[in-house]
Amino acid sequence: MIIRRISHYLCNYENIVPLFAGACAFIVLIGILLLPIQYHNDQLYPKTIDRNSTLDPYDRGGPPFAQATIRAQYPENSPSAGLVTSYLTPFSQFLADTTPHLGTTIVAHPGGILDEILYNTRGLDTVVEPTILFIAFAIASYLYRKGS
């Protein structure tokens, strides 16, 4: 009897969003109760900040075309890790030499630690991510065309 009633409630799809959101809120509250979670200090890709560098806070590369040390999970699988990190285009190099705060926009330039992780050591994530974007885009453009 009770199962039938639960099943009847679930089969109305208007109810599933509040139900799922409620479940999420419940787990989050349990999470708060269980809280202090010990942060593991031995992390991959640790962040070091050199305030004096013009590339601050993104300077961790060393000179271009020289390999920086990257603390990856399996360094033996990515022999070129550390080269991308230190790479700057000539234009970015020029900006870094002449202006003090290129670091705040360095994510816009190829090279840097983000590219190292995104393309090289954790490249599979980046393959899946634009694929999701692609799928979502396909859904939106299919519906858009069908509607017009």
Binding site: Y45, K47, I113, L114, L118, I132, I135, I139, A140, L143
Partner: peptide, 26 residues
Amino acid sequence: GTDLAEALVLPGLTVGIAEQLALSQI
């Protein structure tokens, strides 16, 4: 708080935006 976090935020953000794009069209 590591460099890894920066690299994980980006896919997380993209997935959220992508699903919102599709959902808004639906």
